[in-house]
Amino acid sequence: MSELVPLLQNISNGLLIGGVYALIGVGLTLVFGVMGTINFAHGDFVVLGMYSAVLFNAVFGWDPYISLLIAVPVGVLVGIAVERGILARIADAPPESAMLATLGISLIIGNGLLLTFGGEPKSVQVSYASSTLPIGPVNISIVLLLAGLATVLVILGLYMLLNRTEIGRAIRGTAENRLGAELVGINTKRIHSIVFGIGVSLAMTAGVTLIPMLFATPSATGAIFTLKAFVVTVLGGLGNIGAAIGGGVLLGLVEVLGASYLDAAYRDAYGLIAFLLILLLRPEGLFGSTVKRV
């Protein structure tokens, strides 16, 4: 019994952190699924979300979750602008070009933030930062719980958007067969812009939910989030939204359990090792069905 409690605690932490990872991963996988582009700037958009919360807190004293009201639409607009201004122009180039372009965007955002906010870590102090909710013997962090709740709502919203709306049908059609979608009158260029906008917005949302528990620092953190998002999507299966949730939860569990029962110093490595194992054994991801070999 004495060993069971910490295990339950670890599992609940892992699940909640995994929820945040899923939120980070889902935007990347949506963009890849529809556009075939790996967005290397994804993590930097997460960091941009963190800084937007920092900014609104410093200026207006807002709670991070209130700044979502601004961050979500701004994310969509920024994403559309980046897609129109850069990615759409190289739509006919090899897919590698888009990947390199997003790498450039990543460096510009990271270093732009560094110039704007300086190198010191920034955070938002919330009154509930260290509050916990006891459920039986397990204590659940309110911050993590809120983040987990936000993840569930956002992914539910995304699911409704994709499956219950006209635009969602157009997005799925474009992802499945771009030419076919165009033949039935879908403007796939517009869909690409919108999807990239949604992707950026999802990344920024993830950033906002993270700021109560993580410091925002420019440049390097962006790359770390991008890497986490990659791991989540590859664990689940690249381009598959439902699988990103599974991948996120799996990564959260692998990290928390690995850190508790193996060696805490290698916390970040467990996810990467799992990622390499998946690449080796099951490149379509644990929950994917399409084999990407050849």
């Binding site: 850069i86 372009a101 790498l103 450039g104 965007i105 990543s106 460096l107 510009i108 270093n111 732009g112």
Partner: peptide, 8 residues
């Protein structure tokens, strides 16, 4: 920053 701008 220059790498980001130049690669674009």
């Amino acid at each position: 920053l220059i790498y980001g701008l130049l690669i674009l």
